[in-house]
Amino acid sequence: MAQEAAEVEIKGSYPEIDEYYESMPDKNGALIPVMHKAQQVYGWLSEDVQLYISHLLGVPASKVYGVATFYSLFNLERKGKFRVNVCLGTACYVRGAEKVLAAFENELDIKNTETTKDGLFTLSSIRCVGACGLAPVVMVNDKVFGRVNPDDVKRIVDEFLSKVGDIA
């Protein structure tokens, strides 16, 4: 429900969000697309960004947060440069994905859902990615690794560590 009348000082500056919102022909139902866009640009939805969207769209902050917590694809924490997603869907699970996840926890010295202190890796478990023939499957950002066994984990981590210089 829009609250256009709120007299609110909008704090911060997020020109990408403004531009995207302005370009939307229909402002009804803008909330989720705008949140998507914000996550695309900033990688996650900080409280400041959620508040900004709340004030821009005239939607209560509680509702923005409600939507952000409902859909698992929205990130409420800053994620690492490399997002390691270990599939725990049925096919992957029965082929030992849990051991793969444990190996990543061990190699990165973090627990599932956490981010390494250097901000490089975030470890998550996900459900079926639709590549059951390759089970167990691990995705790091957009790259898919199939038939992963725990011994492969160090090699995968090293592969991305070696890219750090390139990105910087």
Binding site: P60, S62, K63, G66, F70
Partner: peptide, 11 residues
């Protein structure tokens, strides 16, 4: 009341 304190959060 148009105050907007509550919303269903989490899932």
């Amino acid at each position: 009341q148009t105050v907007g304190v509550y919303s269903p959060v989490h899932r």
